[in-house]
């Protein structure tokens, strides 16, 4: 007080600006992340100038694909396109069907038996780490080239995806309803039927639709490794360097996927 008194007397003000806090830690993190990004780009041989130089060559290609497409190829796309949608439907069905009981077993708060839920979660995690394309190429080796291998890959992939999302939903349910039923002496099956399922069912259906959207997109490219659908047509057109046909396939599958996405996400919005 005594130190500031003479200052006030002379009319000087205390500085309003607070001294800057020490940002050393934050700046070090920023520096580290930047180094990581630049290092990664350098390691992968990413050269902006070279890419820009190459873009002129690419421009010709893009023009052939999207400005001069071979529209007479369209009728030959319909049946592989329909196969793609069928693959996504069947794959989603099996995946979602298996996911519900698995999610119930993997949720920690329902059975409350860690020796079941822990290993189950571990297996589900492994399922989710393997990309659908890799699964598809493994299944092609077993079931041969065709849509069935794709359906198998999509089923396994969807199973992992929906199981994880659903067991997380089960773990975040309102536990009061479960306790109310327990206090009435309900057994596990009754709790599942009247407390757990009604709460998660809208979310589960929403996840299933989400899985379907993901599957339509995945099914469109699975054919690249021989697992059926439009991807196979795509791969052939690309192998013959018929870029005018490639353009038609890309555009049509793009609009089909976009339409399915829009319909499905509007249903999902009403569900949850």
């Amino acid at each position: 007080m005594s130190a500031t008194a003479p200052q006030q007397a002379t009319g000087a003000h205390e500085p309003i600006v607070v001294p800057r806090p020490n940002h050393l830690r934050r700046n070090l993190i920023i520096l580290g992340v930047t180094a990581l990004i630049v290092g990664s780009a350098w390691f992968a041989g990413f050269n902006v100038f070279q890419i820009l130089a190459n873009f002129q060559r690419g421009g010709r290609l893009l023009r052939r694909m999207f400005l001069e497409p071979d529209w007479s190829f369209t009728p030959r796309i319909y049946s592989p396109m329909i196969e793609t949608i069928r693959m996504a439907i069947v794959g989603t069905f099996w995946g979602a069907l298996l996911a519900l009981p698995t999610a119930v077993l993997a949720a920690e708060n329902f059975l409350q038996k860690p020796w079941i839920s822990k290993p189950l979660r571990f297996i589900l995690n492994i399922f989710r780490t393997i990309p659908a394309m890799v699964l598809a190429s493994l299944f092609v080796a077993i079931f041969g080239i065709g849509a069935f291998s794709g359906v198998m890959a999509l089923s396994v992939f969807t199973f992992g995806l929906i199981s994880k999302l659903t067991f997380e939903s089960i773990e975040s349910i309102d536990y009061g309803q479960v306790e109310a039923l327990m206090s009435l002496g309900a057994n596990k099956m009754n709790i599942l039927r009247y407390a757990v399922l009604p709460q998660i069912l809208p979310q589960y259906m929403s996840y299933t639709l989400y899985g379907f959207e993901v599957n339509v997109r995945a099914a469109a490219v699975l054919g690249y490794v021989g697992a059926g659908g439009i991807g196979q047509t795509f791969e052939q057109a690309l192998a013959f360097r018929r870029f005018d046909r490639v353009g038609v396939i890309i555009m049509i599958s793009f609009f089909v996927v976009l339409a399915i996405d829009l319909v499905s996400s509007s249903i999902r919005k009403r569900l949850v």
Partner: peptide, 28 residues
């Protein structure tokens, strides 16, 4: 939404034909 719908594998194929095969096409 349109960007999200476009499969990355097809994007990769387009970029491969533009910048050549390799990691830069994947990054793009």
């Amino acid at each position: 939404t349109m960007i999200r719908t476009f499969p990355e594998l097809i994007l990769a194929l387009i970029f491969i034909s533009i910048v050549g095969p390799g990691a830069p096409a994947g990054i793009l």
